[in-house]
């Protein structure tokens, strides 16, 4: 029965709580009630779980997955985020000849490296819009603000 619970809820989306990432603790398993006609029993289970729910204006850390001229995609755990090129600071220029494609900053960072947004780079972004679908939550973000953008050592 516990396995059934894990299968049913882990990795799924709840409209109220967002992503249910992992069931941590089962508080109470109610007594089963047989359903008429089917022979199945229904149990009310109270459990604690690790959930992830994002809110508008929340600042999140993610990893860039895809870069294209329109902007880039990042993953924040199970959540995917899109940052449009308009919301990337203008000193980041899209360079299609780079391999892999990247937004490259005109300024170096503190260590003198050119700051790049390319696949695999950690970024910090602020969420500006969220859309919850049946199987997926997805949001758009911005890095055109102070302290946002590619991060070192995240």
């Amino acid at each position: 029965m516990l396995r059934k619970l894990y299968e049913e809820v882990e990795g799924h989306i709840d409209g109220q709580y967002g992503y249910i990432i992992s069931v941590l603790n089962i508080v109470e398993v109610g007594s089963g009630v047989l359903q008429p006609m089917t022979g199945l029993a229904e149990f009310n289970v109270v459990y604690q779980a690790l959930v992830m729910k994002v809110f508008k204006n929340m600042v999140v850390d993610g990893v860039v997955t895809v870069v294209n001229p329109l902007g880039f995609w990042a993953e924040i755990g199970p959540l995917t985020m899109f940052v449009a090129s308009a919301l990337i600071p203008t000193y980041f220029k899209y360079d299609p000849s780079a391999n892999p494609p990247a937004f490259i900053s005109e300024f170096g960072d503190d260590n003198g490296h050119v700051s790049r947004i390319e696949k695999g780079v950690a970024v910090r972004a602020r969420i500006i819009g969220i859309r919850t679908e049946a199987t997926e939550i997805f949001c758009v973000g911005t890095i055109k603000e102070d302290y946002l953008g590619p991060q070192l050592g995240v």
Binding site: K56, F82, G129, I130, E133, V140
Partner: peptide
Amino acid sequence: VRGICATCGK
């Protein structure tokens, strides 16, 4: 992006 504006989040 899928129904939300990527520049203003609406």
